[in-house]
Amino acid sequence: MSIAEERIDILFDLAKERTSAGEFDRSREYIRLARRISERNRCGLPREFKRFTCKQCDVALRPGVNARVRLNNGHVVVRCDCGATQRYPYE
């Protein structure tokens, strides 16, 4: 694991903590910084990071705090408070 990947994991953990505390602006900063590190170092983002961050408002998603998670016809539907919706298949 490279230094960039470790840093992205640390920033994602910090973003989740800030979202749970209700500090969405701080969470946004951590997510944006992690994405910039990923782009600069040409390393991909982990699946958990992609699925639990809002692509529209750049905040870490926490079910019950700022996101709704529903199951619908073989898909997991995650809806952020900003209105963005993401769907993922499951079996």
Results as ranks from 00 to 15, higher is better:
72 N>T: 05
62 R>Y: 12
29 E>N: 12
14 L>G: 05
56 Q>M: 07
75 H>K: 15
3 I>A: 08
11 L>R: 14
2 S>T: 13
21 A>P: 04
38 S>M: 00
52 F>A: 01
2 S>E: 10
90 Y>D: 06
52 F>G: 00
42 R>L: 07
32 R>W: 00
11 L>E: 09
85 T>W: 00
16 K>F: 08
59 V>L: 11
13 D>T: 14
27 S>W: 11
5 E>V: 06
7 R>Y: 10
32 R>M: 13
47 R>Y: 12
1 M>H: 11
31 I>A: 08
39 E>L: 05
21 A>W: 04
12 F>C: 10
43 C>F: 03
81 D>L: 11
34 A>I: 12
18 R>I: 05
91 E>L: 07
49 F>R: 04
11 L>W: 10
85 T>A: 00
18 R>N: 02
85 T>H: 04
57 C>Y: 06
69 V>L: 11
65 V>L: 14
24 F>D: 02
61 L>F: 11
65 V>R: 14
78 V>W: 00
13 D>H: 14
49 F>D: 00
43 C>K: 06
39 E>Y: 03
36 R>E: 14
27 S>G: 15
30 Y>E: 13
87 R>K: 15
46 P>E: 01
84 A>F: 12
26 R>I: 06
90 Y>S: 01
58 D>A: 13
42 R>N: 10
86 Q>H: 10
47 R>N: 14
70 R>A: 10
75 H>G: 01
16 K>A: 03
69 V>M: 15
26 R>Y: 11
64 G>S: 12
78 V>Q: 07
91 E>K: 11
81 D>T: 05
52 F>W: 15
32 R>Q: 08
50 K>W: 00
51 R>N: 15
38 S>A: 09
50 K>H: 00
4 A>I: 04
16 K>G: 02
66 N>W: 12
14 L>T: 15
77 V>Y: 05
86 Q>P: 06
37 I>D: 01
91 E>R: 09
75 H>A: 09
11 L>Q: 02
90 Y>F: 14
17 E>G: 02
55 K>Q: 02
75 H>C: 09
37 I>K: 08
51 R>P: 01
47 R>F: 04
79 R>Q: 09
38 S>W: 03
36 R>M: 01
3 I>P: 06
72 N>V: 14
66 N>A: 09
15 A>Q: 03
23 E>L: 08
21 A>D: 07
65 V>T: 15
82 C>N: 02
56 Q>C: 03
24 F>V: 04
10 I>P: 03
26 R>G: 07
19 T>E: 08
78 V>L: 06
56 Q>D: 10
44 G>F: 13
60 A>F: 11
55 K>R: 05
65 V>Q: 14
7 R>E: 13
19 T>A: 15
80 C>A: 03
71 L>S: 07
89 P>R: 15
54 C>G: 04
28 R>D: 13
87 R>L: 06
24 F>L: 04
84 A>K: 05
16 K>L: 08
4 A>W: 03
21 A>K: 14
53 T>P: 04
56 Q>I: 14
6 E>H: 05
55 K>I: 11
39 E>N: 11
16 K>R: 09
